[in-house]
């Protein structure tokens, strides 16, 4: 069963930039996590996203569309990336969500609609 892990964190919190002392360790943690997912046969896909300031939202209102600057929801925590994983149960998905090296932030676990039901 597929679950989308939606990663969000507060952009005002410091995160290591290329060239910073902790940057390599930070990147290594992410790469280790992705490798662990792959090794467990749970990895489907995943990407890191550009900051929320780069987002554009196309709002649909019964056929009419409006293009707006910014993400669709103004929250303290911004969407920063995702993993699509394939595991047996929600408990497995929660375990993987616990292991995301996000530092401080949130990981929403959302079950994907099973396509073989359509």
């Amino acid at each position: 069963m597929k679950y989308l892990l939606i990663l969000a964190s507060d952009p005002s919190l410091p995160s290591p930039e290329p060239g910073d002392a902790g940057f390599e360790a930070y990147m290594a943690a992410w790469s280790e996590y992705t490798q662990a997912l792959t090794a467990a046969g749970a990895h489907h896909s995943g990407e890191a996203l550009q900051p929320a300031e780069t987002a554009t939202t196309v709002r649909h209102d019964a056929g009419a569309t409006t293009v707006m600057d910014g993400p669709f929801a103004e929250l303290k925590e911004h969407l920063g990336g995702y993993y699509l994983i394939d595991v047996d149960t929600l408990d497995d998905a929660i375990e993987w969500a616990r292991r995301v090296p996000i530092g401080t932030g949130s990981v929403e676990v959302r079950p994907v609609f099973p396509t073989d039901e359509f």
Binding site: M1, D88, T89, L90, V109, P111
Partner: peptide, 10 residues
């Protein structure tokens, strides 16, 4: 059902 919460004791 939808999230497939297992009915097992961890």
């Amino acid at each position: 059902r939808a999230a497939n919460i297992p009915l097992t004791i961890p």
